[in-house]
Simulated scan of single mutants.
Amino acid sequence: MANRSNDKRNFALRSETGEETKVFSGKMPRQAALKAARRLEAADSEEESARSEFRLREKGTKKLHIYEGWAWREQAPEDKPDWMAETITQANVSKEGIEYLDEL
């Protein structure tokens, strides 16, 4: 049997209508939520960033993780690798709760 703590899990980004548009993976729901939040419209600073609610359904379950996320741009670190852009998108999330779907 596989050790669940080492396995990546898939989380589908779910729209208001229930359509699942993108899939993000991570060991924990927060890791997938941070990846999803980086896709939000990035502000010039964390203070200016707009917060958006989004929902991630854990694939294979009826569990819906609800997050509030925000993203912003900032300068890349000085010791960045050559391939990295001058500005990068940072993100943060706050878990709002979990819901269970009646059906898939």
Rank of each mutant, 00 (worst) to 15 (best):
E48R: 06
E46M: 13
Q75P: 08
S25M: 12
R51F: 08
A37W: 01
R38A: 08
G26A: 11
L40Q: 10
Q31S: 15
W70G: 02
E68C: 00
L34P: 00
K59L: 12
R38S: 11
F24H: 10
K27W: 08
S52R: 05
E53M: 08
S49H: 01
G60C: 05
A32T: 11
F54M: 09
K62Q: 07
E46Q: 15
E78N: 11
K35H: 08
V23A: 01
P77Q: 01
P29K: 11
K27I: 14
L34C: 07
K35Y: 10
A33E: 04
K62F: 00
E41F: 06
E68H: 00
F54Q: 07
L64V: 06
H65E: 08
L40H: 06
E74S: 11
A32G: 10
S25N: 14
A50H: 10
A37Y: 00
R73A: 03
Y67L: 03
L56K: 04
K27A: 11
E46C: 12
K63H: 03
S49D: 03
A37S: 06
K35E: 13
W70K: 10
L40Y: 09
S45G: 09
Q75G: 07
S49I: 01
S52H: 13
S49G: 03
K22E: 15
K35F: 07
F54V: 10
K27V: 13
D79C: 05
A32V: 07
T61L: 00
D79F: 05
E46A: 15
Y67N: 02
K59Q: 11
A36N: 10
F24P: 12
L64E: 07
K80S: 12
W70M: 09
R57N: 13
W70D: 03
E48V: 05
I66Q: 02
K80A: 13
